[in-house]
Design a binder for these strands. Structure first.
Length: 552
RNA sequence: CUGCUCGUAGCUCAACUGGAUAGAGCACCAGCCUUCUAAGCUGGGGGUUACAGGUUCGAUUCCUGUCGGGCAGGCCA
């Protein structure tokens, strides 16, 4: 529809301008129904080069429009907008189209089945997942679903930082608990993790428990001085806990990558050697530096410390080189905004490898912090103090659907306030129910009709003429565009906003019009329309990973 | 101090990436169930889009500055 009208405008403009190649005809959907179904600002764009009044140009364009059956009326409005009113037939056609495509309606092939990897969550195995991880999980998973709907071949990946200082800290903390120490006792690690889950780990360790996580199985030795066993057990224990968190959130990963594997397989050392060979490093003060300033960083960064270990961004670079070598021409990292300073460093390291990795690779989607409120006060997220809201608690309190929706329905780059009392007390007022309710209402009507839904595919739609019906059909027609632009902007929240609008159009229709009327032709047309709406609600909700219940 | 980011109704958030009279939900007021689910609908009040300039036919959106919040700025991760 949009393309058809754009082509018509282009035809008309060609009679006014010789060179149309630089012209970008923008067709948008006006907010107000008075302004038609589509509008273009092309006349205003042309006003300057043609040195004419925009409204006069608009009139010339209208006069030059080829004959067609799509447009029923054209207006000039405001400073020179051209408003197009689409004929009723053309609007109704969307219903048939949805019946034809079904679950595939809204999907496109823009990605051309190319590989894309999305890394998200990637929490350190030092504690259960909290709300902040939940936001990353919800946004990341929706991004994957969006990319899939846009024809990409998606790999979901979780990266474990299971090497380094924080794991040492975890080990020390568990060791202290195993030896019967409490955080207030002398000898408990100063920066140790104080949460109760450390006690759970210690008890399981002493009970010689066996833990299965992803691809590994670990049995505790129970030896109170065996730090190596404690380390392995603690990491496995927490990975298992995180698996359960993700399971409760209905998120599955295709690949788990381990930082420790990068070391044991020599890939970190390899990357360092490559960087040295490329000539972008130098020795200073007994340390090895990478000249990241050559790639846009504000200062050079240490790679190998004086004492010998590598700094954290070195394995990060090695890891991303691996991603590149695995054939991902497109990689998206979904992370908390507190990691933004690593972006420059990782990209600089990859550039310095001189292996043809593009400058803006990988892409990043950063989400801002989640502030948790309880009892009108902010709950500080402190892993050390052990005072924080776990993702699993949240899911148990407000449900998986509501939690996912709440965390994905907002633009990632604005801060999010998660009021636990509100989410718990007003479960029924959560916007997700508004959308699901629309779906359940449609299901209920169809159940009472008790006819063959597939037969509606060929229903005569000409009775659909009212304002609420027109508004609903227009909303349905927008869905494919929303799927496309949400993917381009890497903005899953656009889907959530769209679904709210679609649900609103359905509820208005429901209250305004009775569907199960005596007159058969009218009844079938209306049922066809709401069935098409149900399909789009389902398709949209599935992009968010939210269920579409038939009863509520 | 420097960089990134955000600032929209009392609160939580939108605004199709520069469009027309800035929209929803909570909360407040007034209506709508003998009719398909009232977890809904209709109407009303509530705004100098933090502030000051600039760019242009047109700015919540882009640029500059100021103020305010968040996050970074380790040979920590």
């Amino acid at each position: 529809m949009k393309q058809t009208i754009t082509a018509l405008i282009l035809q008309a403009v060609k009679s006014l301008v010789e060179d149309t190649s630089s012209l970008n005809i923008i067709l948008e959907r006006p907010k107000s129904a008075d302004h038609g179904d589509f509008a273009t600002n092309i006349a205003m764009q042309l006003a300057k080069p043609l040195k004419q009044n925009p409204r006069a140009i608009a009139q010339q364009i209208i006069d030059g429009l080829p004959a067609n059956t799509v447009i029923s009326k054209v207006d000039i409005a405001g400073a020179g907008f051209i408003n197009f009113f689409v004929s009723a037939d053309s609007k109704q056609a969307i219903v048939h189209e949805i019946f034809k495509s079904g679950a595939a309606f809204g999907r496109n092939q823009a990605g051309q089945a190319e590989k894309v990897q999305v890394e998200f969550v990637s929490a350190n195995p030092t504690g259960p997942l909290h709300v902040g991880h939940g936001r990353g999980a919800a946004v990341g998973d929706c991004l994957c679903r969006l990319l899939d709907a846009n024809g990409w071949q998606v790999t979901r990946e979780f990266y474990y930082n299971d090497a380094g200082a924080q794991i040492d800290n975890l080990t020390k903390s568990v060791l202290a608990r195993v030896q019967g120490l409490s955080p207030d006792d002398a000898g408990f690690p100063e920066d140790g993790y104080r949460g109760d889950y450390i006690v759970d780990i210690a008890e399981a360790y002493l009970a010689k428990a066996t833990i299965t996580a992803d691809d590994m199985q670990v049995t505790a030795s129970g030896d109170v001085s065996d730090t190596d066993s404690i380390r392995k057990f603690a990491v496995a224990y927490l990975r298992h806990e995180q698996d359960l968190d993700l399971q409760a959130f209905q998120i599955k990963f295709d690949v788990f990558s381990l930082e420790s594997a990068l070391y044991s397989e020599g890939k970190v050392e390899n990357t360092v050697q490559s960087l040295i060979a490329s000539g972008h490093t130098y020795e200073l003060d007994d340390a090895l530096w990478l000249r990241t300033t050559a790639f846009g960083d504000d200062k050079d960064r240490v790679m190998r410390k004086k004492e010998g270990g590598f700094t954290y961004f070195v394995p990060d670079v090695a890891y991303h080189r691996e991603k590149w070598n695995r054939g991902f021409k497109r990689v998206i990292n979904e992370q908390g905004a507190d990691h933004h300073s690593t972006i420059t460093r990782v990209r600089a390291g990859l550039q310095a490898l001189d292996v043809g990795i593009p400058q803006g690779w990988p892409e990043y989607v950063l989400h801002q912090m989640v502030t948790v409120m309880r009892g009108g006060e902010e709950v500080k997220l402190s892993k050390r103090a052990g005072s924080y809201v776990t993702l699993r608690d949240l899911i148990e309190e407000v449900g998986c659907d509501a939690t996912r929706y709440f965390l994905a329905a907002r633009s990632p780059d604005s801060q999010l306030v998660f009021d636990i009392d509100l989410a718990r007390a007003q479960t029924n007022d959560n916007p997700v129910y508004y959308i699901q309710y629309a779906h359940a209402r449609i299901c209920s009507v169809l159940t009472q009709w008790n006819g063959d839904v597939t037969s509606l595919a060929t229903a005569d739609l000409s009775p659909l003429q009212s304002a609420t019906e027109t508004a609903l059909m227009q909303a349905l027609g927008q869905y494919p565009e929303v799927v496309s632009s949400a993917c381009q902007a890497l903005a899953p929240h656009m889907i959530a906003n769209y679904l709210k609008e679609l649900a609103s159009a359905l509820h208005s229709y429901y209250n305004d019009t009775k569907f199960l009327v005596d007159e058969s032709q009218v009844k079938l047309a209306r049922l066809a329309l709401i069935t098409a709406t149900r399909t789009v609600l389902r398709n949209g909700l599935s992009l968010l990973g939210v269920s579409a219940p038939e009863k509520m």
